[in-house]
Design a protein around this nucleic acid. Sequence first.
DNA 1: CACATACTGAACCATATGGTTCAGTATGGG
DNA 2: CCCATACTGAACCATATGGTTCAGTATGTG
Lengths: 123, 123
Amino acid sequence: MVQYGHPAPTHLDASFAALSDVTRRGVLEQLGRADASITELAGKFRMTLTGMKKHVSVLEQAGLVTTEKVGRVRTCRLGARRLEEEAAWIERYRELWAARFDALDVVVDELMKEKRDGRQKRS
Amino acid sequence: MVQYGHPAPTHLDASFAALSDVTRRGVLEQLGRADASITELAGKFRMTLTGMKKHVSVLEQAGLVTTEKVGRVRTCRLGARRLEEEAAWIERYRELWAARFDALDVVVDELMKEKRDGRQKRS
DNA sequence: CACATACTGAACCATATGGTTCAGTATGGG
DNA sequence: CCCATACTGAACCATATGGTTCAGTATGTG
């Protein structure tokens, strides 16, 4: 049986995991509007500083957010990653999906044609 | 401070989580080429039937795969969800991201203009 | 019937996740 | 100096994840 070897290293695991939490998606949207401190984000999403710090760390690890500490305040802003790989993966999948169902359509067409032509198995 | 209420219910959590595993992404790509049984998938990704069954269940929960058991064999195929919501979320984010950095460009332009015009604060 | 195949479910395991509290440290303001 | 603010890190907790083994059940096949 055909088996797969090691897949190429990618950021997809980390970024999709980062995106799988509604709070973190919210943080990204928020930072898309304005930079924010940990305190501000924690306030908006009703959680402790420590909790928010963890979310920000996850986003930072995934390259989606960068932070900079000036004085007491750590300012968070959108990071360098633009979800290009992620968008590309999803787009490729959507094409696969469409192709797969187009193939099904072909099968259906074949069946319809057979029916119309009156062809049948065994007499 | 402005706080957020309950976010609208969405499939994003489940589907992004499903996509965050390299094996599950592989399964989706595989099913894009041909339907497959649990045994076939387990063989290709070098894991136990039980392990693969769990992955397939996760994908099924997320609506990305549907399965049908005929006789002993459970056949897996791509599900109804085409990652439309997911693609849309990412696309919206990418626009936010671009807008955010365009805004930064404007700031930079302003600074450049001030410098060129010789304008300075205080004297 | 006997046996192999294909899956299923329970139990287990190590680690990760999403949150908290509590006890710091560092910084800014009066 | 004193106090409030802003963050940080460790510890803890419940639950989820990604895998396994083992013991079934159900289904094909000779």
